[in-house]
């Protein structure tokens, strides 16, 4: 990661006109010029130019761990609201246990929260799976929703930020790539403290020395 200061760009702004750069996410190429197509921070890494968005909806990618809410049940699976412009589908074939098709509500009912992994993103629809460690229904704890573009900041470099909050509050925290966060602690107080800390990270995501600030906040709480 380049450590030089990242510049805020607006859609249509030319980031570089030097030849040899490749257009990454949030950019397009016109001749030699790389032009931003989103509002965000321009980031040049080696020869790849991209724009780190400051806002926007979650767009599912294969392999993402997300948290969704069951909103409908069909004859062969469940429909999940995943905080994206599209619904996700969880087919029964993507469940790791034996399923009796007569009553699917036994496994996941409407309103249940599920930790799932994006298995497939096709033109028409998104398929998710609960096959895998740590995936499945959420039975208790606290769910908060944050801006999906703040997820990388909440997780921190190599998980440093989320681990700090986890250790300080003794909560188990799972940050879905779609901005849905599950917090499970020993007491409601500790869960609420963790939620507050996460909100703090999303609000002050630009301040340098954020880790220290969060540490201080948690010590006080």
């Amino acid at each position: 990661m380049s450590e030089e200061k990242r510049k805020i760009v607006v859609p249509g702004e030319t980031i570089t006109t030097e030849p040899g750069y490749l257009p990454g996410e949030g950019t397009r190429k016109e001749g030699n010029a790389i032009i931003a197509t989103r509002f965000g921070l321009a980031d040049i890494n080696e020869k790849l130019v991209r724009v780190i968005p400051l806002s926007g909806v979650y767009m599912p990618r294969k392999g993402n761990t997300i948290i969704g809410k069951v909103i409908d049940i069909t004859f062969n699976g469940w429909l999940l609201d995943i905080n994206a412009p599209y619904l996700a589908f969880l087919p029964i074939s993507e469940c790791p246990f034996f399923i009796d098709k007569t009553d699917l509500t036994e496994y996941f009912d409407i309103g249940d929260m599920i930790i799932a992994k994006v298995a497939l993103v096709k033109h028409r629809g998104i398929d998710v799976t609960v096959k895998g460690r740590g995936l499945g229904k959420i039975k208790d704890g606290l769910i908060i929703i944050i801006n999906p573009s703040k997820v990388p900041r909440v997780i921190g470099k190599g998980g440093s930020m989320v681990n700090l909050i986890k250790n300080e509050t003794e909560c188990n925290i799972i940050v879905g790539q779609n901005g849905v966060v599950w917090i499970k602690g020993k007491s409601i107080e500790s869960e609420l403290l963790a939620a507050k800390a996460i909100r703090l990270v999303t609000e002050k995501s630009f301040i340098e020395g954020l880790t220290e600030m969060v540490q201080e906040f948690l010590n006080k709480g």
């Binding site: 607006v10 859609p11 989103r38 509002f39 806002s55 926007g56």
Partner: peptide, 11 residues
């Protein structure tokens, strides 16, 4: 639209 993070060619 730009503030909402919607991809745009320009303003």
């Amino acid at each position: 639209l730009a503030h909402a993070g919607v991809p745009m060619k320009e303003l």
